[in-house]
Design a protein around this nucleic acid. Structure first.
Lengths: 156, 156
DNA sequence: TTATTAGTTCGTATATAACAGAACTAACAG
DNA sequence: CTGTTAGTTCTGTTATATACGAACTAATAA
């Protein structure tokens, strides 16, 4: 029972983060583990610390951790002469996550384009709204990388 | 059985659109109905046309349509001396949908802020990455409205 | 060689989402 | 009044997601 010590506030925040990530489509246990790793004072937690701190089963923890590893949300480190793995948030990957959110646009664009292309020509106003939408999303997806550069420079 | 006539290509596209909206979190039947209304030559479809064209039950259609109405994805019109309602996509609402996508950022920001504020001060690098992330998202959420204006002007 | 540790895998229970079908309701039509 | 239409609500079924717990495995330790 190598639990991580957590204040009441931290426990509440883990639930809060958990619910947030559930809304993003993660299963409850996955979302809690991610929350724990974000909130805990200790950044690198062992398998046992994770499942015992959250009162979830080993199997649930195993599956959840593997999901988080596979989607690059977390990674693990090892220590010489220690068989355990220590899991931590891949905070370095946040840029990628944000970009993925924008990437969503491009599949949105091609879907709407596909709809537009097969539509009857008789519904002019509707088709032109679709065109508008495509135009806007295309504009956004070209502007976004520039905006990103702008921010990167302003940071220095 | 007042089915809408659909080409094979249109039927396929409805499924394609359906799967896309399933990924966005809509139930299958809801996603199909939305797909049908986007793809069909006829823009305004009656209750019966919808459920019979998609081979879904009346109850499924009723619930799905109400969900789409409640979330402003569709609306309906009526015709004098005709008790039916004719449902159509609220294409005018697409701007709002995009904005909602960005609105998501602000709740993301406040969550990360909350995590950052309660963290131990001992994990400097990690905390500073969180700060970076907050800075970037804040930057994006202020720049977005400007970008939107830029597009609107360029359109005219 | 035996025990322990660090996880994984498998079978099972539980909850819930999604839909079908039938019964129902409200409005209007004849 | 009686029937019909347009849609809703209720009940039951099925499929799937999630997690538990126990058995298992592979590596190290003693």
């Amino acid at each position: 029972m190598t639990k991580v010590i957590l204040t009441k506030k931290q426990k509440e925040l883990i639930e809060h983060v958990g619910i947030f990530f559930e809304h993003q489509g993660f299963p409850p246990a996955v979302a809690r583990i991610f929350g724990l790793l974000l909130v805990s004072d200790k950044l690198e937690l062992s398998f046992e610390e994770i499942y015992s701190s959250l009162n979830i089963s080993k199997s649930a923890a195993s599956n959840a951790i593997n999901l988080l590893l596979n989607t690059n949300k977390i990674e693990y480190i090892t220590k010489p002469g220690d068989r355990k793995r220590y899991f931590k948030v891949r905070i370095d990957q946040w840029e990628k996550m944000i970009k993925e959110r924008f990437q969503g646009f491009s599949s949105y664009i091609s879907l709407i384009q596909e709809i537009h292309d097969q539509r009857t020509k008789n519904t002019k106003a509707f088709n032109s709204s679709l065109k508008d939408l495509i135009g806007f999303l295309t504009f956004m997806s070209t502007e976004f990388p520039m905006l990103y550069e702008k921010w990167r420079k302003s940071k220095k």
